[in-house]
Design a protein around this nucleic acid. Structure first.
Lengths: 238, 238
DNA sequence: TTCCTGTTTGACCATTTGGTCCACAATAGG
DNA sequence: CCTATTGTGGACCAAATGGTCAAACAGGAA
């Protein structure tokens, strides 16, 4: 009845999600959202509720998509162990420098808000439990296939794989190089995704890894600004 | 010369650090900082510079302390393998429910800011490289002691241990139970901190783990508020 | 004691924030 | 066509934000 929505709610929610994902909840203002959606404040409030509700909708959209993508990735008919190993294959970034990694929206939101916002916390918990469960199933299959030790506890290994995955996800944000990330994935395959037979004969891993280098970036010299009447603003790095 | 500082800068920085640690950079206002320090705005600016500089100082204080603590924890004269295993021993939380976990200040700041703030990113990278290096040293010692397989690559395993550690750190924020965290630590010990001899004979791990449960919390019904003139404010969960 | 120098305080500022409201526009149903 | 009803845009608002400034203040040096 009456006037219909002038915009595609789902598409808008996707745009909003991207904006929140790139800046986080606190750092994203309603003006930002108006800009990227092209909507007026009134429309946003009418369609999605206040900032927090809008954020939750965007986050749910993301988390559902992630869950489904993970499920899909592990539903192919390839051998289970191969599917697991693929999760830990990262490019070694041989081509050029990479931009700063912003990371997974759900992970970032969990870190920013979960401690103080139970809705975010619950959503995170549900999602990670689900992923953990999917991992465990595939682990179980790989175990049945004889590609993992018979002593493997699927739930336990599934959870550990999730942990490693999230650890990588985090370290990428700290500026770790693609090569190092690649190495971690490789090590995970070597140490956690091997069968019995492998462990029986102590075959030395052949991979050589460059030692940690501690080249400290030159500390930026503190520039004492002369006191001036103009308000100093810190430009946001983009 | 002239009037001396009326407060202990280091103590104040510690207080500021705690405030930033509990709320994050964006969500902490200057008013918050004035409140917890008891200082006026002018004093804060005179002593520490603007909000961002102050934040960095607090973060450096934290990161140095963390690094030192980690170094200390791994410098005892216990066997290397034992020191490593201790890193992954978490309480199983048999006693009651735990409050939401806020997490490591450096990790949180990395997630919130590293993508857009190179100073934070650099500090994070330095710190995690250092920790990784410490881990690698201890791994190397454990390997020499014969407590880790002779094929172990210290740098690689050190990095993987750091990854697991950060993964746990993250998952705790998502509301994972202490018992599950305990289990992950246990699995880490079992799967990554075992020597050759262990792997030779395929001893089944005895630990049973409860499967994932998917009890979905009831979606809070959307309450249509009657339009009223008062601004609705979302109370901050504490 | 008297200055000189640095500290402290809080008033003040422009801007930005999340949120409300209302006049207007547009459509579906009669 | 008319009208009831819903969506839209933006003006408006109070509060909060990060930041500046100048006057009052206090301790060390003379």
């Amino acid at each position: 009845m009456a006037r219909p929505r002038q915009f595609d709610e789902v598409k808008m929610l996707a745009v909003v999600r991207d904006e929140f994902a790139s800046k986080g909840f606190e750092a994203t203002s309603l003006d930002d959202l108006m800009r990227v959606t092209g909507l007026g404040k009134g429309s946003i409030y009418a369609a999605f509720g206040d900032k927090h509700q809008l954020f939750l909708s965007a986050l749910r959209l993301y988390s559902d998509a992630t869950r489904n993508a993970m499920h899909a990735a592990l539903s192919s008919d390839k051998p289970a162990i191969e599917k697991l190993r693929m999760l830990f294959q990262f490019p070694d970034g041989a081509n050029g420098a990479s931009k700063p990694y912003r990371g997974c929206f759900l992970a970032n939101s969990t870190t920013e808000l979960a401690a103080h916002d139970c809705e975010v916390r619950d959503l995170a918990r549900q999602t990670y439990q689900a992923v953990e469960g999917i991992f465990a199933e595939v682990v179980e299959q790989a175990k049945k296939d004889g590609d993992l030790p018979s002593a493997t506890e699927p739930a336990e290994l599934g959870r550990l794989l999730l942990t490693v995955m999230q650890g990588i996800e985090f370290l990428r944000k700290s500026g770790m190089t693609a090569e190092e990330v690649h190495g971690i994935g490789h090590a995970t395959e070597q140490l956690l995704l091997r069968g019995d037979k492998f462990w029986a004969r102590a075959k030395p891993s052949a991979r050589a890894v460059a030692g940690s280098t501690f080249k400290r970036p030159p500390r930026k010299k503190q520039v004492r600004k002369p006191a001036s009447a103009v308000k100093t603003v810190r430009p946001k790095e983009r």
